[in-house]
């Protein structure tokens, strides 16, 4: 249970709750830049790409990715091609959780018909949020393709869902908690694991895709 341990780009330890910092601010920035390049490469340009962030931190990440996409390919306009997708009303666990507040869904004015939609989320875990997002997209239009970008893939999928763009693959135990902290929401950038059993091996450095 050590706080940030002097990694490069590690934020002020006072801002970091108990847990191990696995990605610092500069790691997060590099991962997002790489994902942005991969999105452009995969779509062969960014003219038909639409970014949809899943609240709350996916929205922030999508906004940051949008800035990077615009600087790579001017055909991408962050004002025009960025949106957010609330999946609360499509979740399959509504009766098992306390009542969730319904968030905002904001689509690009041109819609998503025929576009390449990139869903952006912070942590990919069971895959159920993404399943809900796919259902929500199905009610909103028929995109040419849907892709998935996430900052952290922590495994333990419960559905046949696979990310297209990953910031970092993070092997975790089911009981651990992975949190993505972002400056816009939490005051600083970091990815933190808590609830890790003492003596467990730190994640290897070679597993970045």
């Amino acid at each position: 249970m050590t706080a940030g341990t002097g990694m490069p780009g590690t934020p002020d330890p006072r801002d970091v709750p108990e847990g191990t910092v696995v990605l610092g601010a500069s790691d997060v920035a590099r991962a997002l830049t790489r994902i942005a390049h991969e999105i452009v490469e995969r779509a062969k340009g960014a003219q038909d790409v639409v970014l949809l962030g899943i609240p709350t931190r996916g929205v922030t990440l999508a906004a940051r990715l949008a800035q990077r996409l615009a600087s790579i390919d001017p055909a991408f306009d962050p004002e025009r091609d960025l949106g957010e997708l609330d999946v609360t009303m499509y979740r399959d666990d509504l009766r098992r959780q306390p009542t969730r507040a319904v968030g905002v869904t904001r689509l690009p004015a041109a819609g998503i018909e025929g576009k390449t939609v990139v869903l952006v989320d912070d942590v990919l875990f069971s895959g159920r949020t993404i399943r809900a997002a796919l259902d929500a997209i199905g009610d909103l239009g028929r995109p040419q393709a849907v892709r998935l970008a996430c900052l952290v893939d922590r495994g333990h999928r419960e559905l046949p869902i696979r990310p297209d763009f990953v910031g970092k693959n993070l092997p975790t135990a089911q009981t651990e908690r992975v949190r993505v902290l972002l400056a816009e929401v939490d005051g600083s950038d970091a990815v933190v694991i808590s609830g890790r059993e003492p003596g467990a091996a730190a994640p290897g450095e070679g597993d970045q895709r």
């Binding site: 009766r95 098992r96 959780q97 969730r100 009981t175």
Partner: peptide, 30 residues
Amino acid sequence: YLLLSGTASSAAVPASLPAPVSSTTEGTAL
């Protein structure tokens, strides 16, 4: 939506609480 979603016993819990990673409520669902 607000009356029918969510566990009946958890009405007092604020919706902004993060969901637990290993959901302990699953066994007690309706």
